[in-house]
Simulated assay, not measured.
Amino acid sequence: MRFFTVLSSLALAATTFAAPSIVVHNNCDFDIFVTSVGQTTGNTNTVQPDTLWTEEEYFQGIGTAIKIGRTAAALWTAKPTLHFSYTYNKGQSIYYDLSTAFGFDFWGEKITVKGDKDKDVPSIEWDGAPEPNHTLSYSGETGLTLEVCAA
């Protein structure tokens, strides 16, 4: 019995201290290319159709921008790039927005940002065209999922 209690406590501690995740779900019928940019720029990752890309939410003194393009070089060649940006304040809040740079490459495709299903997190929804940029926030901990070509 004591062994089970220790394992349960360890499992609870692991979930208590783990940061929520940022998820990009590619629901398109084409590859997208995702790059995480904070104080440093991460690798550009190919996300194939019906595949997820994920990273733990983090804060390095500045916000984080998840940059998505239709080509691997979009971010580096001033091609249309979708920006899913957030500022994470562990345990307290997350601020997030959706914007574009150098045009928009997802015309006619629905794009959504949603929080954890069991929480009342304000969502962002673009229905085939970009919307004006405005920042939303959630008080507390939540993961965020950006779905490109949402159903």
Rank of each mutant, 00 (worst) to 15 (best):
Leu144Gln: 02
Ser8Trp: 10
Glu109His: 04
Gly61Tyr: 03
Gly115Ala: 12
Gly61Asp: 08
Val6Arg: 01
Trp126Asp: 01
Gly143Ala: 11
Gly38Leu: 03
Phe33Cys: 11
Glu147Cys: 02
Thr51Arg: 15
Glu109Trp: 05
Asn43Thr: 01
Trp126Leu: 03
Asp50Phe: 13
Val6Met: 05
Thr51Val: 11
His83Leu: 15
Ala14Asn: 02
Thr87Met: 10
Lys79Phe: 12
Asp118Phe: 10
Tyr95Trp: 11
Leu52Lys: 02
Leu98Cys: 08
Tyr58Ile: 13
Thr51Gly: 06
Thr5Ile: 09
Ser85Met: 15
Ala151Lys: 07
Gly42Gln: 08
Phe59Met: 09
Glu131Leu: 01
Asp50Ile: 05
His83Cys: 14
Gly42Ile: 13
Gly143Ile: 02
Cys28Gly: 00
Thr100Ile: 15
Asn133Leu: 00
Ile124Glu: 00
Thr100Gly: 08
Ala151Gln: 09
Thr112Val: 06
Ser21Arg: 01
Lys114Leu: 05
Phe3Asn: 00
Ala101Gln: 12
Pro20Ala: 09
Met1Phe: 08
Phe106Gly: 03
Val121Pro: 05
Gly108Met: 12
Pro130Phe: 08
Trp53Ile: 05
Gln48Glu: 13
Trp76Lys: 11
Ile66Glu: 14
Ser8Gly: 15
Ser123Val: 06
Trp126Gly: 01
His25Phe: 06
Ala74Leu: 07
Tyr86Glu: 07
Pro20Glu: 05
Gly38Pro: 01
Leu82Tyr: 14
Thr16Ser: 01
Cys28Phe: 02
Leu98Ser: 08
Val37Ile: 06
Thr15Trp: 03
Ser9Phe: 12
Tyr88Ser: 01
Tyr95Cys: 04
Ser93Glu: 13
Thr100Lys: 12
Ala129Glu: 06
Gly38Glu: 08
Ile94Asp: 07
Gln48Trp: 10
Ser93Thr: 09
Asp120Leu: 09
Gly91Pro: 00
His83Asn: 15
Phe4Lys: 06
Gly42Arg: 06
Thr145Ile: 03
Ile68Lys: 11
Ile68Ser: 14
Ile32Thr: 07
Leu52Gln: 11
Leu98Glu: 05
Glu125Val: 02
Gln39Ser: 02
Glu125Cys: 04
Asp31Val: 10
Thr135Phe: 08
Ala151Ser: 07
Ala74Arg: 07
Lys79Ser: 14
Ser8His: 09
Asn27Arg: 00
Ala74Val: 04
Glu57Tyr: 05
Val113His: 03
